[in-house]
Design a protein around this nucleic acid. Sequence first.
DNA 1: CTGCGTGTACCATAACAAGCGGTACACTTG
DNA 2: CAAGTGTACCGCTTGTTATGGTACACGCAG
Lengths: 133, 133
Amino acid sequence: MWFRIDARSPTPIYQQIVDGIKEAVAKNVLQGGERLPSVRELAGLMTLNHNTVAKAYQELERERVIEVVRGRGTFVAEPGSTPDRAERVAHMKDIMKQLWVEAHHLQMTSQDLMTLMKSAVHEWDQERGREES
Amino acid sequence: MWFRIDARSPTPIYQQIVDGIKEAVAKNVLQGGERLPSVRELAGLMTLNHNTVAKAYQELERERVIEVVRGRGTFVAEPGSTPDRAERVAHMKDIMKQLWVEAHHLQMTSQDLMTLMKSAVHEWDQERGREES
DNA sequence: CTGCGTGTACCATAACAAGCGGTACACTTG
DNA sequence: CAAGTGTACCGCTTGTTATGGTACACGCAG
């Protein structure tokens, strides 16, 4: 599978599914048009309830990451514009602020923070490149 | 006060208090040794329960942001080493990955992401500088 | 010592989210 | 038709959040 589930994590299971699939799509491990397992199938593979998987799929559809067709299945969406782009960018900035605050509590300078970020981003960019179609 | 509480936010009230005080400390609005309102006082000011404020203070003490003296009050801690530094840096990297994933779902390149981060950090650095003692 | 304010520790209660198990329905496809 | 799809319910349990209230041990100024 493209991700792991930690039942003891404080973040909800359905959210871990959402994050895992979004990450797989961002890394090109899952590509546009590709079919995802059915809710019952994925639930069986990970020993979860089908309702939990269904909740994750609904959230992913709301974020335009997947497309759902009744009776056919769910598929990775083709990249397109998202309607609430401004709100989502604003939310990213809020998270960046939390990073900045946390960094200073760990005695890191802003430059330290940017250096850490840059190296991490490079790492993920390379993982993404290896999956290029 | 140094922060606001949004009762309709999905993030818990006690967590908003934690975030708000951590941000105020990071921005030098609150400085080392400074005394914070008592749990009942802060609860009264923001019309909250004293238990909710107490929970926030306990979390802040656990993170070494404040220091608590029974019978005297709570004070902003002087900067010092944190015991679980490695875990907290790892957690920061997890959050950075979420930012990277979200950026690519919003059709942003990694370079776009770093540019946004850089400008945001500069903004907060300037706010921090204005409060310098 | 007394009284007050401090953090802290309980108790009970209500509301909500998460997750599970089960059932059922409308839909598409072979 | 039958099988598989997403979806929508129901009830139930668990844990978290937040409230209200009471009580205790501590430090300090009177």
